[in-house]
Design a binder for these strands. Structure first.
Ligand SMILES: [Zn+2]
Ligand SMILES: [Zn+2]
Ligand SMILES: [Zn+2]
Ligand SMILES: [Zn+2]
Lengths: 163, 163
DNA sequence: ATATGTAATGTTATAATATAACATTATATA
DNA sequence: TATATAATGTTATATTATAACATTACATAT
């Protein structure tokens, strides 16, 4: 069984503007469905997080936002990120203190992240088999799982083949 | 197949001083074997990281160190932690920005951490089966693994049974 | 024992990441 | 339109981590 890829590596040139518009459209839809406000700030922060396939730093988002909105300050960004995290629209990469857009808003389990140390991009998998094994292993020692963080460091296929 | 527990939850009262002395002894031995200097600062920082079964913050270590050594400053602690991380004597819990002692210095793979949100303690597993599955899943999409981070959040058996 | 190079620590400053607390404004709906 | 709630503005500060350079300790060769 192969893992489902929620968020891909960019794999060379592709029409990334489509990644962004898809993500925004999905977010809009998801929020509308849940009766939740997808404000201009939240939308713009999500757009900036999706600027590339690399994880984005909160203060890099802030630097851009400051040029557009004089009132932008750290809480502006962190509140928007908090909202987006809660709604499952972005994920935090804990080992990088950085954020990535979620390729499939609203999927249940938290994904597994592949981090390429060569190109810096991050992909997201959703692998029920892996989640299940982790759950079982924990259960065997009497531990009850609420959430799990899986961040896999290495080199993506694109970077491997271009060596 | 059951995961090997490298670092246990404390499971109620136990002679924790033995955990500390064991860890220091193991570290001393490991460093001697590798011809590496286990200085007083490094030893003391490791001892403080092992103060309990909960992960420890760098600045909490620093606060204690300052009372013992007037020259203690952030680099004092971060350098010691960096050394201990490199030697496999401690691990960083990325999702908490905190550090735990390694229950079995020198084991090869990075472990899997169980974080109890009730008591705050952290256990470490070494499960080759899990490592293997993660490696295979990554391989299936052409990704080559260098390292992996697994942090499992939930509730430990001790806390579950005391509810 | 002394010189020499390297590793470790000291010291000061600052960068990077994140939150607290309270004021103001916008939005929904009664 | 009044009211409650959610969102944003604003200022300050907490937390986590590193840069850069000076000094000291240690191992080893002479
Ligand atoms: Zn794209
Ligand atoms: Zn890559
Ligand atoms: Zn103990
Ligand atoms: Zn517990």
């Amino acid at each position: 069984m192969q893992a489902k890829v929620l968020r891909e590596f960019s794999r060379g040139r592709h029409k990334h503007s489509a990644c962004i518009t898809d993500a925004l459209k999905a977010a809009e839809h998801s929020c509308k469905e849940r009766g939740i406000r997808f404000t201009a700030i939240r939308r713009r922060v999500l757009e900036l997080v999706w600027a590339s396939h690399e994880p984005v730093k909160a203060y890099d988002v802030l630097d851009i936002l400051r040029n557009e909105r004089s009132s932008a300050a750290p809480p502006t960004v962190y509140r928007a990120l908090e909202f987006l995290l809660e709604e499952g629209l972005v994920h935090k990469i804990e080992s990088l203190n950085a954020y990535v857009g979620c390729g499939e808003p609203g999927h249940l389990d938290s994904g597994q992240f592949l981090i390429c140390s060569s190109c810096g991009e991050v992909a997201e998998l959703d692998d029920p088999e892996l989640v299940k094994l982790i759950t079982e292993k924990a259960k065997q020692i009497g531990f009850s799982i609420k959430d799990q963080i899986v961040e896999i460091l290495g080199c993506c296929s694109q970077c491997l083949s271009s060596k």
